[in-house]
C-alpha cells in the first residue's frame, strides 16, 4: 500500500507501507467485498434449482394432488349439503305429519264435542218432554182435584141451601102458621146465598 507522507521539510514523499497484518488483512477484505459478486444479482444455480423444484411441485399439484384433494373436499361438502337437505326434508315431513295429526285430532275433538252436544240436546229434549208430561199430569190431577173440590163445595152449598130452606120454611110456618110455598122459599134462599156469596 502506498501512502503520501509530508516530511518535516515540507516535501511530499510516497512511502510504501508494508507493515504487518494491516496490508494483508485489509486487502483481503477489500477484494472479498469488491470483487465478489453483487449480493443482489441472482445466482444461476439457485435460480435454476428453485425454478426446477417449483415447476415440478406445480405440475405435481396441478395434475395429481390438487384435483384429488379438491374432489375429496367437494365430495364431503356435497355430502354435508345432502345431509342438510335430507335433514330439512325430514324436518318438513315431520312437520306435515305433526300438522296432519293435529288436524285429525281437531276433527276428532270436534266430532266428540258434536256428539256431546247432540247427546246433551237429546237429554235436554227428553228431560223437557218428561217435565212437560209431568206438568201435564200434575195439571190434570190438579184439575180433577179442583173439580172435586168445586163439586164438593156445590154439594155442601146445596145441603146448606136445603137446610136454610127447611129452617126458613119452619120459621115461617111457626111465625105465620101456614107453610109457605116451597118453590118460593127455595128461590129466595138461592137469591140470598148468591148475593151473600157475591158480597
Amino acid at each position: 500500500m502506498r501512502v503520501h507522507v509530508t516530511t518535516l521539510q515540507g516535501d511530499l514523499v510516497e512511502v510504501r507501507v508494508s507493515s504487518e497484518e494491516e496490508t494483508t488483512s485489509g486487502e483481503a477484505t477489500t477484494t472479498a467485498e469488491t470483487t465478489g459478486p453483487n449480493p443482489i444479482s441472482p445466482e444461476g444455480k439457485e435460480l435454476i434449482w428453485g425454478a426446477g423444484s417449483f415447476l415440478v411441485f406445480l405440475v405435481i399439484m396441478r395434475v395429481f394432488l390438487f384435483p384429488k384433494l379438491k374432489k375429496g373436499m367437494d365430495a364431503r361438502y356435497n355430502g354435508i349439503r345432502e345431509d342438510f337437505e335430507q335433514a330439512d326434508a325430514t324436518r318438513t315431513a315431520a312437520k306435515t305429519d305433526v300438522s296432519k295429526y293435529e288436524a285429525a285430532l281437531a276433527e276428532v275433538r270436534a266430532e266428540a264435542s258434536a256428539r256431546v252436544d247432540k247427546a246433551r240436546q237429546t237429554l235436554d229434549e227428553e228431560r223437557s218432554a218428561k217435565i212437560a208430561e209431568a206438568n201435564a199430569r200434575i195439571a190434570t190431577k190438579r184439575a180433577a182435584a179442583d173439580a172435586e173440590i168445586s163439586a164438593a163445595r156445590l154439594a155442601v152449598r146445596d145441603q146448606v141451601a136445603a137446610a136454610v130452606a127447611s129452617v126458613t120454611e119452619r120459621t115461617t110456618q111457626l111465625a105465620v102458621g101456614k107453610s109457605p110455598d116451597a118453590g118460593v122459599v127455595q128461590k129466595a134462599v138461592q137469591q140470598v146465598m148468591q148475593t151473600g156469596a157475591r158480597s
Binding site: V3, V5, T6, V17, E22
Partner: peptide
C-alpha cells in the same frame, strides 16, 4: 501515525 491514517484513506477506501 499519519501514514496509518492516510493508509486507511486510499482512493478506493
Amino acid at each position: 501515525v499519519s501514514a496509518r491514517v492516510a493508509a486507511e484513506l486510499t482512493p478506493a477506501e
